[in-house]
């Protein structure tokens, strides 16, 4: 059972079951807990290959036991997402905890990654259960539909769900009075049907300078 002890601390009540959590994110617990390191990238050969590729950016641990365990990471806001068979795509560094029963994997998202430097890979979470994702400041859920496509700064993107197509677009022309560069900034355009989680903050991006 996932519940928010505060907007920045996740409490998980456990009765012998297990959760997967970002390594080092446990801040306190009562009862008896055991910690085991897991490797990211999913199971099997494909997982092994992605682990190699990602340089094990996503290091997870398994926490199992009886009692309440508290998780937090660098004062990030925590958002709970309930999954009923669908897939959640989340920027790997923003995953905090998932139910032990959810499958995690890694997908390659070259387009967005290319602009970010830090996120060539996105973690996918599938199955039935709860996941806790992090954002710098509380994330906003923005709905995408046929009528309302959405454009997002790559640095503010946290996660998305649904049947969405992503494309890169350059939206800005910089020309200043000083005659400085004609640089362009890149944005991600989402079309289709789903929701996008956006944080009120921007990671450093190479090209998302608007």
């Amino acid at each position: 059972m996932f519940r928010l002890q505060s907007s920045k601390v996740l409490a998980v009540d456990m009765t012998g079951d297990a959760v997967k959590a970002k390594n080092g994110s446990m801040v306190a617990y009562d009862g008896e807990m055991a910690f085991k390191k897991l490797s990211g990238g999913g199971e099997g050969l494909r997982g092994m290959v992605t682990r190699r590729l990602t340089g094990e950016q996503m290091t997870l641990m398994e926490v199992k036991g009886h009692g309440t365990c508290f998780f937090a990471d660098r004062a990030s806001e925590i958002n709970l997402v309930g999954l009923r068979g669908e897939t959640l795509y989340v920027e790997s560094s923003n995953l905090l905890v998932t139910d032990g029963g959810l499958r995690t994997g890694t997908t390659f998202t070259g387009m967005r990654g290319a602009s970010q430097g830090n996120g060539l890979f996105t973690t996918t979470i599938e199955g039935h259960g709860q996941a806790a994702i992090m954002s710098d400041g509380p994330a906003l859920l923005l709905r995408v539909s046929a009528q309302y496509p959405l454009t997002v700064d790559p640095g503010a993107y946290v996660a998305h769900q649904g049947n969405l197509r992503q494309s890169f677009q350059s939206g800005v022309t910089f020309r200043t009075l000083m005659g400085e560069g004609g640089g362009e900034a890149f944005q991600i355009r989402f079309e289709g049907d789903g929701v996008v989680y956006v944080q009120p903050s921007e990671r450093n991006t190479i090209a998302g300078d608007v």
Binding site: N23, G24, M26, V27, E32, M33, A34, F35, K36, K37, T59, M61
Partner: peptide, 15 residues
């Protein structure tokens, strides 16, 4: 030390 802490040592993990 936590149960299973050997797995964590050297990983900079607070656990």
């Amino acid at each position: 030390t936590a149960l299973g802490w050997r797995d964590m040592v050297g990983r900079g993990s607070g656990e």
